[in-house]
């Protein structure tokens, strides 16, 4: 992907991956909304990405290609973290899934994924434009 294609591809791919992992996690939460002792799962990604993208303040100058950089160019370091929220409890059976909240999160996440796929399409469209030469 690197080289010929711009970095938008990897960023969008990563964001879409995060979105689909989040969808799976929401599905798991909803499927277990009546399971005793179940604690909801959560995906952390956007904060990590933001941290990664804004890390340029204290970056080292790398005039020579063999210099070690402290702001990695690839997004390999940004991982999609799935964690369990164990601190809260909503029902008598120690479950902490709020069905309405999960449904709202799911709606949000679906729109997000659809937006990302449009962006991806537009990004590919640019290459088509160049290749057709018109």
């Amino acid at each position: 992907m690197q080289g010929f294609f711009n970095t938008n591809f990897s960023t969008l791919k990563m964001a879409m991956d995060a979105s689909s992992v989040r969808h799976q996690v929401i599905a798991q939460n909803i499927a277990n909304s009546e399971t005793p002792n179940y604690k909801r799962l959560e995906v952390r990604f956007e904060d990590e990405l933001k941290k990664h993208l804004h890390k340029k303040d204290l970056s080292l100058k790398t005039p020579h290609p063999k210099h070690i950089s402290n702001h990695p160019q690839s997004l390999d370091h940004v991982s999609i973290q799935v964690s369990r929220v164990v601190e809260t409890t909503i029902t008598n059976d120690e479950n902490n899934v709020d069905l309405d909240r999960e449904m709202a999160l799911m709606a949000y996440n679906t729109i997000r994924y659809q937006t990302l796929s449009r962006l991806m399409e537009a990004n590919i469209g640019r290459y088509y434009t160049v290749m057709r030469g018109a």
């Binding site: 879409m16 929401i26 499927a31 009546e34 799911m106 796929s117 449009r118 469209g125 290459y127």
Partner: peptide, 30 residues
């Protein structure tokens, strides 16, 4: 409760289909 949970799961299936549709529509250029 059971009915609501069932409906919620069915909604997730619909949303999953929306995900797949969105992904399949990526073709660019058109």
């Amino acid at each position: 409760n059971a009915q609501r949970s069932y409906e919620a799961n069915a909604s997730v299936v619909s949303a999953t289909k929306a995900f797949a549709t969105a992904a399949l529509q990526i073709r660019g250029g058109g």
